[in-house]
């Protein structure tokens, strides 16, 4: 990058490194080289001075004051979020439980089909007590819908 014979950098080379030099982001060797150049080059020193004035200008922009309830408002957003998340979770849990019951009701069939040899006899296979009522089912009908108010007839609800 620089003239090795004289081991000195040209102004154009220094110029490219000046911003990083100012930000302390050069490796030790390059940093030393720039420093050395600056010590006897007025124009590069002035260039660095300009960069420093610009940085100072940015650094000196005065901080704005925060509104008084800044933190309280954030914390209420956080609390609100926690609440709705909790409520959301409850809904989730309830629907999960409901789904489990539903799946049990459909898939795990408590009244197997094809009532073997007792086909014609109006035999009660099973009964469920619900709301104090007795629901019965025919041997050939195995699907029971739970929870519907049924009549008292022996056919029950399918």
């Amino acid at each position: 990058m620089f003239n090795k014979r004289e081991n000195k950098m040209k102004c154009s080379e220094v110029n490219l490194l000046l911003s990083r030099y100012q930000d302390n982001e050069l490796d030790n060797y390059s940093g030393e080289m720039v420093k050395e150049h600056l010590s006897d080059c007025k124009s590069c020193r002035m260039e660095l001075g300009e960069l420093q004035r610009i940085s100072l200008g940015i650094a000196e922009i005065r901080d704005v004051e925060l509104k008084e309830n800044f933190t309280a408002e954030v914390m209420s957003m956080v609390a609100q979020h926690k609440k709705t998340r909790f409520a959301g979770r409850l809904v989730y849990i309830y629907s999960f439980v409901f789904a489990i019951f539903f799946i049990f009701g459909v898939l795990i069939d408590p009244y197997p089909a094809g009532g073997s040899s007792e086909e014609n006899s109006k035999m009660e296979l099973s009964s469920i007590l619900l709301d104090g009522q007795k629901f019965t089912s025919d041997n050939n009908h195995n699907f029971v819908i739970i929870g519907l108010a049924g009549g008292n007839d022996e056919k029950g609800i399918y």
């Binding site: 940015i58 901080d63 704005v64 925060l66 800044f70 914390m75 609390a79």
Partner: peptide
């Protein structure tokens, strides 16, 4: 959760002023 306040108080000034310098609207 209440302890999140510590984080807000610790960084609010710098965050607000960082954003302010970016957008220029208080």
């Amino acid at each position: 959760i209440k302890n999140f306040e510590v984080i807000v108080n610790r960084y609010k000034r710098r965050i607000v002023n960082f954003v302010y310098r970016m957008i220029g609207d208080y």
